[in-house]
């Protein structure tokens, strides 16, 4: 990104979701990304079997946020032994919903000409942070006041060597928006909001003290079960 350009949303490195041992020679590694508002599952399919693989298809089990493939898995040519291909599957969030444990767990079935294989993976909840998640200042103040203290969760992020402005810019790249910043007793307090694809708002206070690499994040949400996942995204975004 150039000067003044927003950084892209954080996307974790690919990990192996289906080892070849469990996929009769099919290995799948993958990650999730949000690019220009589109959630994508990015996978590498590798044929470690001795015969050609064809007829790929994918299905998701119902999940917490209704993630579903927005189209078929596009593997247009047969996958030869020792061959790898990169596949990008656009997702939407209008599929069937069922609360998962952990909340961001996704159960996937992939078939080819050999068999059907099942695996679970976890997506960073930041994939679901929408581009219009900047709350009006007045609404933020009223909502912050309105949400009970019981729905506030506090977390710490250690070893974070960023200024509050750098942190704010990084978070904005993942659709976590800073609404106000105040400095009290040498501590920067950033008030931030983010909105999930299903309309859940998360309000945050990020505390950054110059020279102290430990940040404190306080999250307030009417659905406090999302706070742990949102915190994990804060940590991943700020540390990558």
């Amino acid at each position: 990104a150039g000067v003044g350009m927003p950084m892209g949303a954080y996307s974790p490195p690919k990990t192996v979701w289906l080892p070849a041992m469990k996929g009769k020679g099919l290995e799948i590694s993958g990650t999730f990304a949000r690019r220009a508002g589109v959630i994508q599952m990015e996978m590498t399919l590798t044929n470690k079997a001795m015969s050609v693989m064809t007829d790929f298809a994918i299905q998701f089990n119902r999940n917490s946020f209704g993630l579903a493939p927005a189209g078929p898995l596009q593997v247009l040519t047969p996958l030869s032994p020792n061959q790898s291909i990169e596949v990008t599957l656009p997702l939407n969030t209008v599929g069937p919903v069922m609360k998962m444990d952990p909340l961001n767990n996704l159960q996937v079935a992939v078939k080819n000409n050999i068999d059907v294989f099942y695996f679970s993976c976890q997506y960073p909840i930041s994939m679901l942070f929408v581009e219009d998640g900047k709350m009006e200042r007045q609404v933020f103040l009223a909502t912050w006041k309105d949400i009970s203290n019981d729905n506030e969760a506090q977390f710490q992020i250690k070893d974070c060597h960023l200024s509050s402005d750098a942190a704010s810019n990084k978070l904005q790249g993942s659709n976590i928006f800073t609404i106000a910043k105040r400095t009290v007793d040498g501590q920067d307090m950033l008030y931030q909001s983010t909105k999930l694809s299903n309309g859940i708002w998360v309000l945050a206070e990020l505390r950054v003290q110059t020279g102290n690499p430990t940040f404190t994040v306080c999250l307030k949400c009417r659905a406090p079960e999302v706070s742990q996942c949102v915190f994990q995204s804060y940590e991943a975004v700020l540390k990558n």
Partner: peptide, 20 residues
């Protein structure tokens, strides 16, 4: 005036959170 009020409200919020 509204903007001034909101600025002030955020300052009060930050203050109250730091020194409850």
């Amino acid at each position: 005036e509204l903007e001034d009020g909101l600025d002030e409200a955020f300052s009060r919020l930050a203050e109250s959170r730091t020194n409850p």
